[in-house]
Amino acid sequence: MNIFRLAGDMTHLASVLVLLLKIHTIKSCAGISLKTQELFAIVFASRYLDIFTDFISLYNTLMKLIFLGSSFSIVWYIRRHKLVRRSYDKDQDTFRHYFLLLPCFILALLINEKFTFKEVMWTFSLYLEAVAILPQLVLLQRTKNIDNLTGQYVFLLGAYRGLYILNWIYRYFTEPHYVHWIPWISGLVQTLLYADFFYYYFESWKNNKKLQLPA
């Protein structure tokens, strides 16, 4: 494992921890899109179908369990927890996320490395992860006061994707036959979706002003 990959995983883990901190301690999910969280839960459930069949490393299995457990518990919190549920911006979080599922699934059926159940589901999870942030970005645009934790959460998620690209570049030059167009292109699309957010995040940080996205 190279440094970019480890840093990417750690940033991903940190993003989840920041979100759990907000939800668990402050009992608030204001500014967080339930739609995006539901998509992430589907992403991990369809990607980690191999968790009990293919053992890669203890690290790998543990991280998979963490991402599965955290994504489903976040959805549970926002939907079911008495206090957290009250802070959910339901009227603002209106992205039709179900409309992302079918195109991603059809694309996975058409464009994949191998036409098997596990492989198609894995590819589906990559396509879906690429666009899963969209409801969250739309909600951010509509939020007048983006709190620090929400801003940091989205920043860490974007950083995780950027670091994965560096990891692929590194692996391409250090490992033989390491060419994987499907994860690379979907990962690149996913990272580009954060470009706009990054711009305003750094601007607000530089000018020491509150983060706000233009509508």
Partner: peptide, 10 residues
Amino acid sequence: DDDQHVKDEL
């Protein structure tokens, strides 16, 4: 398995 090695990523 050649196409397995990207699956070590999360």
